[in-house]
Design a protein around this nucleic acid. Sequence first.
RNA 1: GUCCCGUUCGUCUAGAGGCCUAGGACUCCAGGUUUUCAUCCUGGCAACAGGGGUUCGACUCCCCUACGGGACGCCA
Length: 471
Amino acid sequence: MAVVTRFAPSPTGYLHIGGARTALYSWLFARQQGGKFVLRIEDTDRERSTGESVQAIFDGMNWLGLAHDEGPFFQTQRFDRYKEIVQQLLDAGHAYYCYCSKEELDALREQQWANKEKPRYNGKCRDSAEVREGVEPVVRFRNPLEGNVVWQDAIRGEISISNGELDDLIIARADGTPTYNLTVVVDDIDMGMTHVVRGDDHINNTPRQINIYKALGAEPPVFGHVPMILGEDGSRLSKRHGAVGVMQYRDDGYLPEAVLNYLVRLGWSHGDQELFSIDQMIELFRLENVNKAPSTFNTEKLQWINQQYIKSVPVERLIEALTWHLEQAGIDANNGPSLEALLPELRERANTLVVLAEACRMFYQDFESFNEGAAKKHLKVSSAEALELVKTKLAALDNWEAEALQQAVHDTAEALEVGMGKVGMPLRVAVSGTGQSPSIDFTLAMLGRERTLARIDQALAYVAQRAEQAR
RNA sequence: GUCCCGUUCGUCUAGAGGCCUAGGACUCCAGGUUUUCAUCCUGGCAACAGGGGUUCGACUCCCCUACGGGACGCCA
Protein backbone atom coordinates (compact mmCIF):
# COMPACT_ATOMS: atom_id res chain seq x y z
CA MET A 1 0.00 0.00 0.00
CA ALA A 2 1.29 3.43 -0.92
CA VAL A 3 2.36 5.54 2.00
CA VAL A 4 0.42 8.68 2.80
CA THR A 5 1.51 11.09 5.55
CA ARG A 6 0.35 14.51 6.51
CA PHE A 7 1.08 17.68 8.37
CA ALA A 8 -2.02 18.99 10.09
CA PRO A 9 -1.44 22.17 12.04
CA SER A 10 -4.12 24.29 13.58
CA PRO A 11 -3.84 27.89 12.39
CA THR A 12 -3.59 29.61 15.73
CA GLY A 13 -0.15 31.14 15.29
CA TYR A 14 2.89 31.01 13.07
CA LEU A 15 4.63 27.81 12.02
CA HIS A 16 7.03 27.23 14.87
CA ILE A 17 10.22 25.25 14.91
CA GLY A 18 8.71 22.17 16.54
CA GLY A 19 5.93 22.00 13.99
CA ALA A 20 8.43 22.49 11.21
CA ARG A 21 10.44 19.52 12.41
CA THR A 22 7.35 17.33 12.65
CA ALA A 23 6.42 18.39 9.14
CA LEU A 24 9.94 17.62 7.94
CA TYR A 25 9.96 14.12 9.42
CA SER A 26 6.58 13.40 7.93
CA TRP A 27 7.62 14.79 4.57
CA LEU A 28 10.92 12.89 4.53
CA PHE A 29 9.17 9.64 5.27
CA ALA A 30 6.65 10.15 2.48
CA ARG A 31 9.36 11.09 -0.01
CA GLN A 32 11.48 8.13 0.95
CA GLN A 33 8.60 5.72 0.55
CA GLY A 34 7.54 7.24 -2.72
CA GLY A 35 4.29 8.20 -1.03
CA LYS A 36 2.16 11.28 -0.71
CA PHE A 37 2.38 14.16 1.71
CA VAL A 38 -0.87 15.90 2.56
CA LEU A 39 -1.31 19.35 4.09
CA ARG A 40 -4.41 19.81 6.17
CA ILE A 41 -5.47 22.85 8.14
CA GLU A 42 -7.27 21.95 11.34
CA ASP A 43 -9.35 25.04 11.79
CA THR A 44 -12.42 23.71 13.55
CA ASP A 45 -11.79 26.07 16.45
CA ARG A 46 -13.19 29.14 14.79
CA GLU A 47 -12.49 31.28 17.80
CA ARG A 48 -8.75 30.94 17.55
CA SER A 49 -8.09 30.17 13.91
CA THR A 50 -7.06 33.08 11.74
CA GLY A 51 -6.38 33.68 8.08
CA GLU A 52 -3.01 35.21 8.91
CA SER A 53 -1.98 32.03 10.65
CA VAL A 54 -3.02 29.97 7.65
CA GLN A 55 -0.86 32.21 5.49
CA ALA A 56 2.01 31.99 7.97
CA ILE A 57 1.90 28.20 7.74
CA PHE A 58 1.90 28.30 3.94
CA ASP A 59 4.78 30.80 3.95
CA GLY A 60 6.80 28.71 6.35
CA MET A 61 6.28 25.44 4.50
CA ASN A 62 7.00 27.15 1.24
CA TRP A 63 10.19 28.75 2.49
CA LEU A 64 11.41 25.43 3.85
CA GLY A 65 10.55 23.74 0.57
CA LEU A 66 8.26 21.15 2.14
CA ALA A 67 5.87 20.81 -0.74
CA HIS A 68 2.64 18.91 -0.30
CA ASP A 69 1.13 16.59 -2.89
CA GLU A 70 -2.45 17.03 -1.82
CA GLY A 71 -4.40 19.77 -0.13
CA PRO A 72 -4.41 22.07 1.58
CA PHE A 73 -7.63 20.73 3.00
CA PHE A 74 -9.59 22.80 5.47
CA GLN A 75 -11.63 21.05 8.09
CA THR A 76 -14.17 23.84 8.16
CA GLN A 77 -15.09 22.84 4.62
CA ARG A 78 -15.81 19.29 5.62
CA PHE A 79 -18.46 19.80 8.27
CA ASP A 80 -21.09 17.93 6.28
CA ARG A 81 -18.90 14.89 6.21
CA TYR A 82 -18.27 15.02 9.96
CA LYS A 83 -21.99 15.35 10.64
CA GLU A 84 -22.61 12.32 8.54
CA ILE A 85 -20.12 10.31 10.59
CA VAL A 86 -21.49 11.58 13.89
CA GLN A 87 -24.94 10.42 12.80
CA GLN A 88 -23.50 7.10 11.74
CA LEU A 89 -21.93 6.62 15.17
CA LEU A 90 -25.18 7.66 16.81
CA ASP A 91 -27.18 5.20 14.74
CA ALA A 92 -24.79 2.39 15.51
CA GLY A 93 -24.90 3.09 19.22
CA HIS A 94 -21.25 4.16 19.35
CA ALA A 95 -22.25 7.63 20.39
CA TYR A 96 -24.99 9.27 22.41
CA TYR A 97 -26.48 12.63 23.26
CA CYS A 98 -25.45 14.24 26.51
CA TYR A 99 -27.40 17.04 28.16
CA CYS A 100 -25.03 17.76 31.01
CA SER A 101 -24.27 21.46 31.26
CA LYS A 102 -20.84 22.99 31.34
CA GLU A 103 -21.46 24.06 34.90
CA GLU A 104 -22.26 20.51 35.95
CA LEU A 105 -19.18 19.22 34.24
CA ASP A 106 -16.99 21.87 35.83
CA ALA A 107 -18.34 20.97 39.24
CA LEU A 108 -17.73 17.30 38.57
CA ARG A 109 -14.13 17.96 37.53
CA GLU A 110 -13.50 20.07 40.56
CA GLN A 111 -14.85 17.43 42.86
CA GLN A 112 -12.82 14.69 41.25
CA TRP A 113 -9.73 16.81 41.51
CA ALA A 114 -10.43 17.38 45.18
CA ASN A 115 -10.77 13.64 45.66
CA LYS A 116 -7.41 13.21 43.91
CA GLU A 117 -9.01 11.33 41.09
CA LYS A 118 -8.36 11.72 37.41
CA PRO A 119 -11.05 14.09 36.11
CA ARG A 120 -13.33 12.18 33.75
CA TYR A 121 -16.87 12.34 32.53
CA ASN A 122 -18.97 10.13 34.78
CA GLY A 123 -21.15 8.70 32.03
CA LYS A 124 -24.35 10.16 33.37
CA CYS A 125 -26.08 10.31 29.99
CA ARG A 126 -24.40 7.23 28.60
CA ASP A 127 -27.31 4.88 29.14
CA SER A 128 -30.25 7.02 30.00
CA ALA A 129 -30.18 10.42 28.48
CA GLU A 130 -32.59 12.63 30.30
CA VAL A 131 -33.79 14.94 27.56
CA ARG A 132 -33.91 18.52 28.71
CA GLU A 133 -36.15 20.98 26.98
CA GLY A 134 -34.38 23.90 25.41
CA VAL A 135 -30.94 22.37 25.90
CA GLU A 136 -28.97 21.50 22.81
CA PRO A 137 -27.09 18.29 23.62
CA VAL A 138 -23.51 17.48 22.77
CA VAL A 139 -22.62 14.12 21.27
CA ARG A 140 -20.28 11.85 23.18
CA PHE A 141 -18.39 8.85 21.93
CA ARG A 142 -19.21 5.66 23.77
CA ASN A 143 -15.75 4.53 24.78
CA PRO A 144 -15.22 0.86 25.71
CA LEU A 145 -15.18 0.30 29.45
CA GLU A 146 -12.89 -2.70 29.55
CA GLY A 147 -9.53 -3.68 28.19
CA ASN A 148 -6.46 -1.84 26.97
CA VAL A 149 -5.62 0.06 23.86
CA VAL A 150 -2.20 -1.01 22.67
CA TRP A 151 -0.27 0.17 19.67
CA GLN A 152 3.24 -0.08 18.30
CA ASP A 153 4.46 3.46 18.04
CA ALA A 154 6.96 3.88 15.23
CA ILE A 155 9.12 6.00 17.51
CA ARG A 156 8.28 4.99 21.06
CA GLY A 157 7.66 1.30 20.68
CA GLU A 158 4.70 -0.32 22.37
CA ILE A 159 2.38 1.96 24.29
CA SER A 160 -0.55 0.67 26.29
CA ILE A 161 -3.34 2.59 27.94
CA SER A 162 -6.27 1.15 29.84
CA ASN A 163 -9.76 2.00 28.64
CA GLY A 164 -10.52 2.64 32.28
CA GLU A 165 -8.41 5.78 31.98
CA LEU A 166 -10.47 7.09 29.12
CA ASP A 167 -13.87 8.71 29.30
CA ASP A 168 -16.62 9.41 26.80
CA LEU A 169 -15.22 12.33 24.88
CA ILE A 170 -17.35 14.90 23.14
CA ILE A 171 -17.26 14.49 19.38
CA ALA A 172 -19.79 17.18 18.50
CA ARG A 173 -20.45 20.39 20.35
CA ALA A 174 -23.87 21.72 21.27
CA ASP A 175 -23.78 23.91 18.17
CA GLY A 176 -23.27 20.81 16.07
CA THR A 177 -19.63 21.46 15.16
CA PRO A 178 -17.29 18.48 15.46
CA THR A 179 -14.28 18.36 17.75
CA TYR A 180 -10.68 17.51 17.10
CA ASN A 181 -10.59 13.84 18.03
CA LEU A 182 -13.39 13.09 15.61
CA THR A 183 -12.30 15.26 12.69
CA VAL A 184 -8.78 13.98 12.80
CA VAL A 185 -9.92 10.38 12.56
CA VAL A 186 -12.46 11.04 9.83
CA ASP A 187 -9.92 12.99 7.79
CA ASP A 188 -7.14 10.50 8.24
CA ILE A 189 -9.47 7.74 7.09
CA ASP A 190 -10.88 9.69 4.16
CA MET A 191 -7.48 10.87 3.04
CA GLY A 192 -6.03 7.39 3.18
CA MET A 193 -3.43 8.11 5.82
CA THR A 194 -1.07 5.21 6.43
CA HIS A 195 1.32 6.93 8.83
CA VAL A 196 0.60 9.67 11.31
CA VAL A 197 3.71 11.50 12.51
CA ARG A 198 2.89 14.13 15.09
CA GLY A 199 3.99 15.73 18.34
CA ASP A 200 4.02 13.58 21.45
CA ASP A 201 1.49 15.83 23.11
CA HIS A 202 -0.94 13.69 21.13
CA ILE A 203 0.07 10.41 22.72
CA ASN A 204 -2.82 10.67 25.14
CA ASN A 205 -5.28 11.29 22.32
CA THR A 206 -4.15 8.29 20.36
CA PRO A 207 -6.02 5.58 22.31
CA ARG A 208 -9.25 7.57 22.06
CA GLN A 209 -8.75 7.92 18.34
CA ILE A 210 -7.95 4.24 17.94
CA ASN A 211 -11.26 3.45 19.61
CA ILE A 212 -13.04 5.69 17.12
CA TYR A 213 -11.27 3.97 14.23
CA LYS A 214 -12.53 0.66 15.56
CA ALA A 215 -16.07 1.94 15.99
CA LEU A 216 -15.96 3.09 12.40
CA GLY A 217 -14.63 -0.26 11.27
CA ALA A 218 -11.42 1.29 9.98
CA GLU A 219 -7.84 0.18 10.39
CA PRO A 220 -5.79 2.71 12.38
CA PRO A 221 -2.63 4.04 10.70
CA VAL A 222 0.86 3.62 12.09
CA PHE A 223 1.50 6.32 14.67
CA GLY A 224 4.84 7.92 15.37
CA HIS A 225 5.08 10.45 18.16
CA VAL A 226 8.01 12.83 18.01
CA PRO A 227 9.22 14.52 21.18
CA MET A 228 8.94 18.24 21.62
CA ILE A 229 11.67 20.81 21.22
CA LEU A 230 12.71 22.77 24.28
CA GLY A 231 13.90 26.36 24.37
CA GLU A 232 17.55 27.24 24.98
CA ASP A 233 16.94 27.33 28.72
CA GLY A 234 15.45 23.85 28.72
CA SER A 235 11.89 25.01 29.22
CA ARG A 236 9.05 24.75 26.80
CA LEU A 237 9.60 26.70 23.60
CA SER A 238 7.71 29.95 23.70
CA LYS A 239 7.77 33.49 22.43
CA ARG A 240 10.15 34.34 25.23
CA HIS A 241 12.85 32.54 23.31
CA GLY A 242 12.68 34.96 20.44
CA ALA A 243 12.77 33.45 16.99
CA VAL A 244 10.18 30.71 17.15
CA GLY A 245 8.31 31.29 13.91
CA VAL A 246 10.28 29.77 11.04
CA MET A 247 10.08 32.94 8.97
CA GLN A 248 12.06 34.65 11.70
CA TYR A 249 14.97 32.43 10.71
CA ARG A 250 14.79 33.75 7.20
CA ASP A 251 14.84 37.28 8.56
CA ASP A 252 17.81 36.43 10.74
CA GLY A 253 19.78 35.25 7.74
CA TYR A 254 19.48 31.49 7.77
CA LEU A 255 19.29 29.40 4.63
CA PRO A 256 16.24 27.11 4.65
CA GLU A 257 18.45 24.14 3.79
CA ALA A 258 20.51 24.88 6.90
CA VAL A 259 17.42 25.08 9.07
CA LEU A 260 16.24 21.77 7.65
CA ASN A 261 19.64 20.19 8.30
CA TYR A 262 19.64 21.49 11.85
CA LEU A 263 16.13 20.25 12.41
CA VAL A 264 16.73 16.80 11.03
CA ARG A 265 19.68 16.35 13.37
CA LEU A 266 17.73 17.60 16.36
CA GLY A 267 16.38 14.33 17.65
CA TRP A 268 17.61 12.13 14.86
CA SER A 269 21.04 11.02 13.72
CA HIS A 270 22.86 8.79 11.32
CA GLY A 271 26.10 7.80 13.01
CA ASP A 272 28.45 10.76 13.26
CA GLN A 273 27.23 12.56 10.19
CA GLU A 274 26.31 16.21 10.73
CA LEU A 275 25.62 17.53 7.26
CA PHE A 276 22.92 16.07 5.04
CA SER A 277 21.70 17.14 1.65
CA ILE A 278 17.95 16.89 1.17
CA ASP A 279 18.47 13.77 -0.91
CA GLN A 280 20.56 12.17 1.82
CA MET A 281 17.95 12.99 4.42
CA ILE A 282 15.30 11.37 2.30
CA GLU A 283 17.45 8.31 1.81
CA LEU A 284 18.70 7.88 5.36
CA PHE A 285 15.89 9.08 7.60
CA ARG A 286 14.26 6.41 9.75
CA LEU A 287 11.41 6.98 12.15
CA GLU A 288 12.75 4.31 14.48
CA ASN A 289 15.98 6.29 14.85
CA VAL A 290 14.19 9.35 16.14
CA ASN A 291 15.04 9.94 19.78
CA LYS A 292 12.42 9.55 22.45
CA ALA A 293 13.58 12.35 24.69
CA PRO A 294 12.88 16.02 24.02
CA SER A 295 15.83 18.03 22.74
CA THR A 296 16.96 21.55 23.40
CA PHE A 297 17.24 24.10 20.65
CA ASN A 298 20.73 25.51 20.24
CA THR A 299 21.27 28.59 18.11
CA GLU A 300 25.05 28.25 18.08
CA LYS A 301 24.91 24.93 16.33
CA LEU A 302 22.31 26.23 13.89
CA GLN A 303 24.71 29.07 13.14
CA TRP A 304 27.56 26.69 12.51
CA ILE A 305 25.45 24.64 10.13
CA ASN A 306 24.28 27.79 8.41
CA GLN A 307 27.87 28.81 7.91
CA GLN A 308 28.69 25.43 6.40
CA TYR A 309 25.88 25.94 3.91
CA ILE A 310 26.83 29.52 3.14
CA LYS A 311 30.31 28.28 2.33
CA SER A 312 29.31 25.34 0.21
CA VAL A 313 26.02 26.04 -1.53
CA PRO A 314 26.27 26.82 -5.30
CA VAL A 315 26.98 30.51 -5.74
CA GLU A 316 23.79 31.04 -7.77
CA ARG A 317 21.80 29.65 -4.89
CA LEU A 318 23.64 31.90 -2.46
CA ILE A 319 22.88 34.94 -4.59
CA GLU A 320 19.26 33.94 -4.81
CA ALA A 321 18.94 33.82 -1.03
CA LEU A 322 21.13 36.85 -0.43
CA THR A 323 19.25 39.15 -2.78
CA TRP A 324 16.35 39.52 -0.38
CA HIS A 325 18.75 40.51 2.41
CA LEU A 326 20.58 43.00 0.24
CA GLU A 327 17.27 44.65 -0.48
CA GLN A 328 16.40 44.70 3.20
CA ALA A 329 19.76 46.31 3.91
CA GLY A 330 19.25 48.88 1.19
CA ILE A 331 22.22 47.69 -0.83
CA ASP A 332 22.12 47.91 -4.61
CA ALA A 333 24.25 45.10 -5.98
CA ASN A 334 24.27 46.69 -9.41
CA ASN A 335 26.37 49.51 -8.12
CA GLY A 336 29.67 47.63 -7.97
CA PRO A 337 31.37 44.31 -8.68
CA SER A 338 29.38 41.21 -9.60
CA LEU A 339 28.22 39.07 -6.71
CA GLU A 340 29.58 36.03 -8.53
CA ALA A 341 33.07 37.48 -8.23
CA LEU A 342 32.66 38.85 -4.73
CA LEU A 343 30.95 36.03 -2.89
CA PRO A 344 33.59 33.29 -3.16
CA GLU A 345 35.73 35.32 -0.78
CA LEU A 346 33.07 36.91 1.40
CA ARG A 347 31.13 33.72 2.04
CA GLU A 348 34.08 32.33 3.98
CA ARG A 349 33.56 34.85 6.71
CA ALA A 350 29.82 34.97 7.34
CA ASN A 351 27.59 32.74 9.40
CA THR A 352 24.35 34.40 8.41
CA LEU A 353 23.09 36.12 5.28
CA VAL A 354 22.57 39.28 7.32
CA VAL A 355 26.27 39.35 8.14
CA LEU A 356 27.10 38.52 4.52
CA ALA A 357 24.94 41.36 3.22
CA GLU A 358 26.71 43.75 5.58
CA ALA A 359 30.07 42.51 4.35
CA CYS A 360 28.95 43.36 0.83
CA ARG A 361 28.04 46.92 1.71
CA MET A 362 31.50 48.48 1.31
CA PHE A 363 31.66 47.33 -2.29
CA TYR A 364 28.44 49.06 -3.26
CA GLN A 365 28.17 52.06 -0.98
CA ASP A 366 30.53 54.80 0.13
CA PHE A 367 30.69 55.70 3.77
CA GLU A 368 30.83 58.97 5.64
CA SER A 369 32.88 58.01 8.64
CA PHE A 370 35.35 55.44 9.86
CA ASN A 371 34.80 52.93 12.59
CA GLU A 372 36.15 54.69 15.64
CA GLY A 373 38.23 51.88 17.08
CA ALA A 374 39.69 50.86 13.75
CA ALA A 375 40.51 54.42 12.77
CA LYS A 376 42.08 55.20 16.09
CA LYS A 377 44.34 52.20 15.79
CA HIS A 378 45.29 52.30 12.14
CA LEU A 379 44.64 55.75 10.72
CA LYS A 380 47.31 57.46 12.75
CA VAL A 381 49.20 60.56 11.82
CA SER A 382 52.15 58.31 11.19
CA SER A 383 50.14 56.30 8.68
CA ALA A 384 49.94 59.18 6.26
CA GLU A 385 53.28 58.44 4.64
CA ALA A 386 52.35 54.86 3.89
CA LEU A 387 48.95 55.85 2.55
CA GLU A 388 50.45 58.52 0.32
CA LEU A 389 53.03 56.20 -1.10
CA VAL A 390 50.71 53.29 -1.67
CA LYS A 391 48.25 55.62 -3.32
CA THR A 392 50.93 56.82 -5.69
CA LYS A 393 51.95 53.29 -6.54
CA LEU A 394 48.37 52.16 -7.02
CA ALA A 395 47.52 55.14 -9.17
CA ALA A 396 50.44 54.29 -11.41
CA LEU A 397 49.26 50.77 -12.15
CA ASP A 398 48.27 49.93 -15.68
CA ASN A 399 46.20 46.91 -14.81
CA TRP A 400 44.03 46.80 -11.73
CA GLU A 401 44.47 43.16 -10.85
CA ALA A 402 45.06 41.30 -7.62
CA GLU A 403 48.66 40.36 -8.31
CA ALA A 404 49.76 43.86 -9.25
CA LEU A 405 47.85 45.35 -6.35
CA GLN A 406 49.49 42.98 -3.94
CA GLN A 407 52.85 43.90 -5.40
CA ALA A 408 52.19 47.61 -4.95
CA VAL A 409 51.39 47.15 -1.28
CA HIS A 410 54.44 44.96 -0.89
CA ASP A 411 56.72 47.48 -2.58
CA THR A 412 55.40 50.24 -0.36
CA ALA A 413 56.23 48.31 2.78
CA GLU A 414 59.66 47.55 1.43
CA ALA A 415 60.40 51.09 0.38
CA LEU A 416 59.44 52.40 3.81
CA GLU A 417 61.19 49.53 5.52
CA VAL A 418 58.15 48.65 7.60
CA GLY A 419 56.08 45.48 8.05
CA MET A 420 53.12 44.70 5.85
CA GLY A 421 50.81 45.54 8.71
CA LYS A 422 51.91 49.15 8.70
CA VAL A 423 50.73 49.55 5.13
CA GLY A 424 48.00 46.93 4.83
CA MET A 425 45.99 47.86 7.85
CA PRO A 426 45.75 51.61 7.27
CA LEU A 427 44.86 50.81 3.69
CA ARG A 428 42.25 48.30 4.77
CA VAL A 429 40.62 50.73 7.14
CA ALA A 430 40.79 53.43 4.51
CA VAL A 431 38.89 51.41 1.93
CA SER A 432 36.54 49.47 4.19
CA GLY A 433 35.88 51.97 6.91
CA THR A 434 35.65 49.13 9.40
CA GLY A 435 39.01 47.41 9.27
CA GLN A 436 37.46 44.14 8.25
CA SER A 437 37.64 42.86 4.73
CA PRO A 438 38.93 39.93 2.70
CA SER A 439 42.60 39.93 1.66
CA ILE A 440 43.68 43.40 0.62
CA ASP A 441 44.52 42.54 -3.00
CA PHE A 442 41.12 40.96 -3.55
CA THR A 443 39.38 43.82 -1.80
CA LEU A 444 41.06 46.48 -3.91
CA ALA A 445 40.53 44.52 -7.09
CA MET A 446 36.80 44.27 -6.40
CA LEU A 447 36.51 47.85 -5.29
CA GLY A 448 38.08 49.21 -8.44
CA ARG A 449 40.56 51.98 -9.06
CA GLU A 450 38.26 54.93 -8.72
CA ARG A 451 36.70 53.96 -5.41
CA THR A 452 39.99 52.84 -3.93
CA LEU A 453 41.81 56.07 -4.68
CA ALA A 454 38.90 58.19 -3.54
CA ARG A 455 38.74 56.35 -0.25
CA ILE A 456 42.45 56.69 0.34
CA ASP A 457 41.98 60.42 -0.14
CA GLN A 458 39.14 60.33 2.34
CA ALA A 459 41.40 58.57 4.84
CA LEU A 460 44.22 61.02 4.20
CA ALA A 461 41.85 63.86 4.92
CA TYR A 462 40.87 62.19 8.14
CA VAL A 463 44.50 61.74 9.15
CA ALA A 464 45.26 65.35 8.31
CA GLN A 465 42.38 66.48 10.44
CA ARG A 466 43.64 64.33 13.24
CA ALA A 467 47.11 65.85 12.92
CA GLU A 468 45.52 69.27 13.07
CA GLN A 469 43.72 68.43 16.29
CA ALA A 470 46.85 67.01 17.85
CA ARG A 471 48.64 70.32 17.57
C1' G B 1 -3.59 14.06 42.19
C1' U B 2 -4.16 10.11 38.24
C1' C B 3 -2.31 8.15 33.77
C1' C B 4 1.35 8.16 29.77
C1' C B 5 6.31 9.20 28.22
C1' G B 6 11.34 10.23 28.96
C1' U B 7 16.75 10.51 31.44
C1' U B 8 24.90 9.51 27.94
C1' C B 9 29.71 15.71 28.14
C1' G B 10 26.79 22.80 28.95
C1' U B 11 24.01 21.52 23.99
C1' C B 12 22.91 17.90 19.64
C1' U B 13 24.14 12.93 19.61
C1' A B 14 27.00 7.57 18.78
C1' G B 15 26.31 3.27 21.58
C1' A B 16 21.36 -2.91 20.14
C1' G B 17 25.73 -7.23 26.99
C1' G B 18 32.28 -7.79 26.24
C1' C B 19 34.70 -3.61 20.33
C1' C B 20 34.05 1.78 25.95
C1' U B 21 40.43 3.95 28.70
C1' A B 22 32.31 5.85 26.56
C1' G B 23 33.20 8.11 20.14
C1' G B 24 31.72 12.47 16.94
C1' A B 25 29.70 17.58 16.43
C1' C B 26 28.62 22.62 18.50
C1' U B 27 30.33 25.87 22.34
C1' C B 28 34.60 27.01 25.33
C1' C B 29 40.08 27.00 26.29
C1' A B 30 45.35 26.67 24.39
C1' G B 31 48.44 26.75 20.13
C1' G B 32 49.47 27.20 14.59
C1' U B 33 48.24 29.48 9.57
C1' U B 34 46.29 34.45 8.09
C1' U B 35 49.03 42.16 7.33
C1' U B 36 42.49 42.42 9.71
C1' C B 37 38.19 39.51 10.37
C1' A B 38 36.71 34.82 9.17
C1' U B 39 38.07 30.20 7.30
C1' C B 40 41.39 26.25 8.10
C1' C B 41 44.73 22.90 11.11
C1' U B 42 46.46 20.73 15.95
C1' G B 43 45.53 19.79 20.97
C1' G B 44 42.52 20.16 25.53
C1' C B 45 38.26 20.42 29.21
C1' A B 46 33.71 17.79 29.70
C1' A B 47 28.73 12.72 30.42
C1' C B 48 26.33 6.95 31.19
C1' A B 49 20.57 10.54 37.23
C1' G B 50 20.71 7.25 41.94
C1' G B 51 19.91 2.41 44.07
C1' G B 52 18.95 -2.60 43.65
C1' G B 53 18.85 -6.99 40.74
C1' U B 54 19.92 -10.56 36.16
C1' U B 55 24.84 -12.03 34.17
C1' C B 56 31.37 -14.53 34.16
C1' G B 57 30.53 -9.35 32.43
C1' A B 58 25.96 -3.90 31.99
C1' C B 59 25.72 2.72 29.19
C1' U B 60 23.18 -1.41 27.04
C1' C B 61 18.17 -6.16 30.10
C1' C B 62 14.52 -5.97 34.65
C1' C B 63 12.65 -3.38 39.14
C1' C B 64 12.42 0.80 42.43
C1' U B 65 13.49 5.95 43.49
C1' A B 66 14.55 10.83 41.93
C1' C B 67 14.10 14.40 38.36
C1' G B 68 11.91 16.29 33.78
C1' G B 69 7.90 16.51 30.30
C1' G B 70 2.98 15.61 28.52
C1' A B 71 -2.23 14.57 29.02
C1' C B 72 -6.52 14.89 32.00
C1' G B 73 -11.50 21.00 27.66
C1' C B 74 -18.15 21.73 24.13
C1' C B 75 -8.56 23.56 22.26
C1' A B 76 -6.02 21.29 18.60
